[in-house]
Computed example of a mutant assay.
Amino acid sequence: MPRRLRLVELDFVASAPVRLSFTAELAAPPGAVYRSLAEEVESMPAWFAAVTAATPTGDGAGRTVHLRGGVRFRETIMAAEPGARYAYRIDETNAPGVAAMLEDWVLSPAGAGTRVDWTMAVDGPAACRLAFRLARPGVGRSFRDAMRSLDRRLTAAGRP
Rank of each mutant, 00 (worst) to 15 (best):
P82W: 10
A95D: 12
A121I: 13
T119M: 08
V41R: 07
E39I: 08
G58W: 02
W47L: 11
A126T: 14
I90M: 12
A14M: 06
G58I: 05
N94K: 07
R141G: 07
T57W: 01
R136C: 04
T64A: 11
A16I: 03
R63Y: 08
D11E: 15
R68W: 00
A121T: 11
W105D: 04
V18A: 11
Y86N: 04
M101C: 14
A84L: 11
A79K: 08
L102S: 02
A38N: 03
A61H: 03
A99F: 01
R85S: 10
L107T: 04
D151R: 03
L7V: 08
M101L: 15
G58N: 03
R133K: 15
R68V: 15
V116F: 04
R133W: 13
T55Y: 03
E103Q: 11
A99D: 14
G124N: 13
S36E: 15
G113N: 07
T57N: 02
L5G: 06
A38W: 02
A32K: 04
T52C: 05
G158D: 10
T155G: 04
A53I: 11
S149V: 10
R4C: 05
A87W: 01
T57V: 13
P96D: 14
A87E: 01
R68M: 08
P30C: 12
V116L: 08
R3F: 07
F73N: 01
N94S: 10
A87Y: 01
T76G: 00
V139I: 15
P125L: 14
S15W: 07
L102E: 00
R152Y: 05
D91S: 03
V116G: 01
G97N: 14
G58K: 02
C128R: 10
Y34P: 05
T52F: 07
A112F: 03
A112V: 12
R6T: 13
L67H: 13
Y86Q: 02
M78T: 08
G69T: 10
T64N: 04
P2V: 12
M101V: 02
R35W: 02
A80P: 00
L7S: 06
T114E: 08
E39D: 14
V13W: 03
V41C: 11
L102V: 06
A127N: 08
T93D: 09
L150D: 02
A131L: 15
P17R: 14
A121M: 12
P96G: 12
R141P: 00
F143M: 09
M101I: 02
S142A: 15
T55L: 14
A80W: 00
W105V: 02
P82T: 12
D91P: 04
A99G: 11
P137M: 10
T114R: 02
T57M: 02
G60Q: 03
G60P: 07
A80N: 08
T55N: 09
R72Y: 09
S21C: 09
F73S: 02
D145P: 00
A112C: 02
C128F: 03
V116P: 00
S43P: 03
T76M: 00
L102A: 07
D104L: 07
A54N: 13
S142M: 12
R129S: 05
G60A: 04
D117A: 12
G69R: 05
E25V: 15
T52Q: 09
F132N: 09
T114W: 05
R153E: 11
F143H: 04
A27Y: 01
P45K: 12
R35K: 08
E40C: 11
